[in-house]
Each structure stands twice: as structure tokens, then as C-alpha cells.
């Protein structure tokens, strides 16, 4: 067992998968440069030493190299695309939404698209264009799986599953959870490191984790918001409110079974999300709960989300923008009060 950060765990997963299968390679900007960073957040740092021909550094041409990855996957390669910031996915949107996500379907199932896209997200002191949570833009897009690892253990196991999946998989990694070191370290980071077993493991998609058991209310949250929800749950516990915290770990596929089991027990549910409220993941989860679980609910479903604006820069506004532990505590108390 060794304690690894998410960045280190991802690196280990990539290294192991590249050793296991010579068709696996990494492609992206500022990767594999001796003396460089190993991508924007150090994930691929040093891998070029072991795999000089399979860490492919590209021009700044997102649409171009996403298409290159797709083309190469059609003849059996298994690219792991490294995007510096999730926001840049928009530059490659045609390749992702029209090509990568649809090519198998429109071929009548005759081609396979084994592509992993790794993209950092998180509202982190960079203003509107380097801070977006990208999940909602892809959640509505059939043909692509979405994974959101909040711990190093999950990051490694889910990435390995993603590389072995014959379909496109998007992994959103949170900048404040990487644990990147040195010049690429991130202020305000949270320790998301885990003890990583020596032996190999993978984690299946569509299996949520109950981070904390509780009986009064269910909170669903991913990535950084999972930590805020967990912290809120601890505070609420001291005040006599028992909170269950669910980390879905993958959004597509989604583990409805775990969520429904929890709501059947608690009758109350809050979804916490770092992205704007309108059209967010929370809206989809809430709608499904309303359709299928209404009889179990003893309080309205609540969403705690960012406002419907771009992410602001000033730390004062950013703090207002991102759902805080206090907001979660407050909202849970409100729900408990109106339904007890």
C-alpha cells in the first residue's frame, strides 16, 4: 500500500495500462516534454521516459487532435486524450459531439471507439474560461460515458476501466483534488489521496459509493462537492441530523439503485453541484426522482448549485458562486424543518 494523490494515481493507472496494452497511448498538449509539466496538472509527468513513442505532444489544435485520436481508434489504437482545461473541450466539440459520440451508432454498430478523454474541471481562481464544470454539456449527449472520481483510489480504478472500455469515456478530474505538486500545485486544494493497493484493481462504472451512512436525508454530490457535502454531514450529525452522502462516481451510467434505496430510507434528497443550476445534472436527477420516487418523498427535492452566470474571478465572488459547506448545512436544516 502506498498513499497517492489523484494525479499520482492517474499516472500509475496510465503507466500500468500502457504496459499492459501497447495500443494505449496518450495525446495532448504539453505532455511528454522533458523539463515540462506532464500536462497542465502533472498527470503524465515523466511517462515519456518509459514510453517515448506513445506520449504524443500535439500542436494547440484541439479539434485536430481529438479527430486524430478518433481516427487512430478506428484501427485499434486506444488513445487517452489529455485536455489542459475542460473548458477547451468546446474547441473540439464537433469531434466529440458529432463524431466520437455518434460514429458507432451511425455505422449501425460496426465500429468501436475506445477513447478516453481526461479533462480538468473546477472553479479555481481563473475566471470564466478556465473554471467551468463541463458535465452538463456532455450529460445530454448519447454515446459517451462520464466518470467523476473524487478520490485517488477511484481515479485509478475508474481510469483503468475507462481505458479497457470499447466506448468513449470522459473523465472529469477536479483541479482542487489532484494534489499536484511543485509549480503546478493548486491553492485551496483538498486532500483526496488514498491508500492504493499493490495488487491491480478496476472499478466498474455505474456503481455509486455511500460515503457516509445516514437515515434522515440523502445528499448526492460528486468531485469537490462530495467533500463539502461530507463536511456538512459531519456538522449536521453533531446537531442530531443523520445525513447519507452518495458519491455516484459515474454520471453515465448512473447508479439509480443506490440512490433509490437511500431515498426510500430517508425520504429527503438534496443534490449539490458546482455548475449552474439551469439544466444541470441536479435537474436530471431531480426530475427522475420526481417521476419515479414521489411516493417516498416527505419533502421537496432541493438543488444546491452555482448561479446561472459564468464563474467570476474575484475570490469574494467565487466564494459566493461555489456551493459552500455552510449553504449545504443551512439547506438541509430548512428541509428537515419543513418536513418534520
Amino acid at each position: 500500500m502506498a498513499r497517492l494523490t489523484i494525479a499520482e494515481a492517474l499516472r500509475e493507472a496510465i503507466r500500468e495500462e500502457m504496459r499492459r496494452d501497447e495500443n494505449v497511448y496518450c495525446i495532448g498538449e504539453d505532455i511528454g516534454i522533458p523539463g515540462g509539466w506532464g500536462g497542465a496538472f502533472t498527470v503524465t509527468l515523466g511517462l515519456e521516459k518509459e514510453f517515448p513513442d506513445r506520449i504524443i505532444n500535439t500542436p494547440i489544435s484541439e479539434a485536430g487532435f481529438f479527430g486524430v485520436a478518433l481516427g487512430s481508434s478506428l484501427i485499434g489504437l486506444r488513445p487517452i486524450i489529455d485536455v489542459q482545461y475542460g473548458d477547451f473541450l468546446f474547441c473540439a466539440m464537433d469531434q466529440i459531439a458529432n463524431q466520437i459520440a455518434k460514429l458507432r451508432y451511425m455505422s449501425g454498430g460496426k465500429v468501436k471507439i475506445p477513447i478516453v478523454i481526461r479533462a480538468p474541471v473546477g472553479v479555481t481562481g481563473r475566471g470564466a474560461q478556465h473554471s467551468q464544470m463541463m458535465e452538463p454539456f456532455f450529460h445530454c449527449l448519447p454515446g459517451i460515458k462520464i466518470v467523476v472520481p473524487a478520490t485517488a483510489y477511484d481515479a485509478k480504478g475508474l481510469l483503468k476501466t475507462a481505458v479497457r472500455d470499447d466506448n468513449p469515456v470522459l473523465i472529469f478530474e477536479h483541479k482542487l483534488l489532484y494534489g499536484a505538486k511543485g509549480v503546478r500545485s493548486e491553492s485551496g486544494s483538498i486532500d483526496a489521496s488514498s491508500e492504493i493497493p499493490e495488487e491491480e484493481y478496476t472499478i466498474p462504472f455505474g456503481k455509486a459509493v455511500v460515503r457516509k451512512q445516514g437515515k434522515d436525508i440523502t445528499i448526492i454530490a460528486t468531485l469537490l462537492m462530495m467533500y463539502r457535502a461530507y463536511e456538512a454531514a459531519q456538522i449536521l450529525e453533531e446537531q442530531g441530523i443523520s445525513v447519507e452522502v452518495i458519491d455516484p462516481r459515474s454520471l453515465v451510467p448512473f447508479d439509480w439503485e443506490t440512490v433509490k434505496k437511500s431515498i426510500a430510507k430517508t425520504g429527503r434528497v438534496v443534490i449539490v453541484e458546482e455548475s449552474p443550476r439551469r439544466g444541470g445534472i441536479g435537474a436530471e436527477i431531480a426530475a427522475t426522482i420526481a417521476e419515479e420516487m414521489l411516493d417516498f418523498l416527505i419533502a421537496p427535492v432541493r438543488r444546491i448549485a452555482a448561479p446561472d452566470t459564468p464563474a467570476p474571478f474575484s475570490p469574494v465572488m467565487e466564494k459566493f458562486y461555489v456551493p459552500s459547506t455552510e449553504r449545504i448545512v443551512q439547506t438541509v436544516k430548512e428541509i428537515i424543518n419543513i418536513s418534520s
Binding site: 487532435f65 479527430g67 486524430v68 478518433l70 481516427g71 487512430s72 481508434s73 478506428l74 469531434q95
Partner: peptide, 12 residues
């Protein structure tokens, strides 16, 4: 849309 894809096939 197909131009980078063909490029990627050649890359592969």
C-alpha cells in the same frame, strides 16, 4: 469533420 479523422488513421 473528416479531415482530422483521416489524419488520425494515418497517424495510427
Amino acid at each position: 469533420g473528416g479531415i482530422p479523422i483521416a489524419t488520425g488513421i494515418g497517424f495510427g
